[in-house]
Design a binder for these strands. Sequence first.
DNA 1: TGATCACAGTAACATTAGTTACATAGGCTT
DNA 2: AAGCCTATGTAACTAATGTTACTGTGATCA
Lengths: 210, 210
Amino acid sequence: MIQELKNNYGHLFENELLEEINSVATFKEIPEGMELIRPGSYIKSMPLIINGAIRILREDQEGDELLLYFLEKGDTCAMTLSCCIGHHKSEIKAIAETDATLIMIPVEKMEEWTAKYKSWRNFVFESYHKRLMEAIETIDSIAFLNMDERLLKYLKDKTKVNNDTIVHNTHQEIAYDLHTSRVVISRLLKKLEVEGKIKLNRNNITVISL
Amino acid sequence: MIQELKNNYGHLFENELLEEINSVATFKEIPEGMELIRPGSYIKSMPLIINGAIRILREDQEGDELLLYFLEKGDTCAMTLSCCIGHHKSEIKAIAETDATLIMIPVEKMEEWTAKYKSWRNFVFESYHKRLMEAIETIDSIAFLNMDERLLKYLKDKTKVNNDTIVHNTHQEIAYDLHTSRVVISRLLKKLEVEGKIKLNRNNITVISL
DNA sequence: TGATCACAGTAACATTAGTTACATAGGCTT
DNA sequence: AAGCCTATGTAACTAATGTTACTGTGATCA
C-alpha cells in the first residue's frame, strides 16, 4: 500500500505520518455507481481518494437531487471530516462516479494527527477550503449562469474527471444532476450538436469542442 | 475585554486560551454598512464576532451580487480562516449588516493554538462545518426554491439576524441580495402584502407573519 | 420476428422570471 | 410652493424554463 500513498500524498505528508497512515488505514476498492454515503448516516472513517472520482450530491425533502461537485485523486471529503469531528449526520450523498480506490482512516486517528502533525492540519484545512470553494462555485453556476451554460460546464467537468471525451450518461441522468427536466436537457444538447460542439448518440455524448 | 470574551466564548474555550486571546487580540467596533473584506484582498487577522451581524456576499465578474449568508455572535469567518492558513485571496465580500463588535486575532496565533488547544481546533472545525452547511443551504434555496419562496426565506432570515420585525431595505437592495430585478421583488412583495403577511412602507417592510 | 422497453426528438403550451417603460408618491432642498 | 430625487406600483412584453403528450428508434428478449 505504501507506494500508492507515497505517490499521491508523499509531497504533503512527512514520512512518519505516511507510516502511521500505512499502519492503521485500510484499502477499499469501490465499483462505479456504488453509494458511499447517504444523507442522515453517521460516518466512522475518513476516505483519502487514491484514484477514481466521487460524485457529491445534495438531496431535498422530495428526493430532488443536485450535483454539488466531484472529488478526485488527492481529495478527501470535507463533509466526512466535520461529521467525524463534530459528530454530525451527513447532509449529502456520495456515489462513485468511476471505479475508485480509497484509503480509509479511522476517526480516532484524525483527531490525534491534527494535534501531532502540522502537515495533517494543513491538509485538513486545505480540504475544507477547497470544498467550500467548490460549493461556492456551484452557487455561482446556479445563480449566475443559464441552463445552457451550466450544461456546458457540466460536460466540461465530466470529460475532465473521467478523462474521457465521451460522456456516458443519458439525458435523464444529466437532468437529475442539474435538477431540471429531461426535455430541457434534450433541447439544449440538440442545440449544442447543431453548433457542432458535441455528437449525440444513444446512452452517450461525444464531446468535440466546448 | 475579558468579560465579553467570557460571555460569548467561555463555554467553548478553557481559561488559559481565553487569557491568551485576551492578551493578543484587539477589539474592533464596526459601523453598519462598512466593508470588511473585498474579493481579492489578503487577510491578516481573524475576526471573532462578539455582537452584530455580517453579510457574506459572492460577486461575479460583472459585479453581480448574491447574498450567501450572515455571520452572527459566536461565529467566525471560514473564508478568513482558510485565507489565513492557506494564504489564499478572499473570494467573498463581507459587509457589516448592523453595527458590530469584533475581536481580531493575529494569524500567527491561529496556527499556534490549533496545535496547542483541542477546544480551538474544535471551534475551527465547527466553524468550517457551519459555513459549508450555510453554503449548501444557499444552494438549496437557489436550486430548489422559486423566487417567492426565496424572498420569504430572506425576510425570515433578516428579521432573525436583526432581531427586528421591520426590514430596513429598499426593494432594490433586496433584489441585489437575491440577484434578481427590482420589479420582480416589488411584484412578489405586493403579493405578500395582499396575503396579509407583510406591510409595505417606503424604505422598509413590516413583517406581520411569515 | 414481433413485442417490449428505455431513450431520444419535438411540438405545443404553461409558468416563472426578467425587461422596458411609464406613472405616482413621499420627502428633501431651496 | 416648485423642483428634484428616490422609491414604489404596474402594465405589457420577452425570454427562459418546465410540462405534457406523442412519435420514432434502437436494443433486447421471448
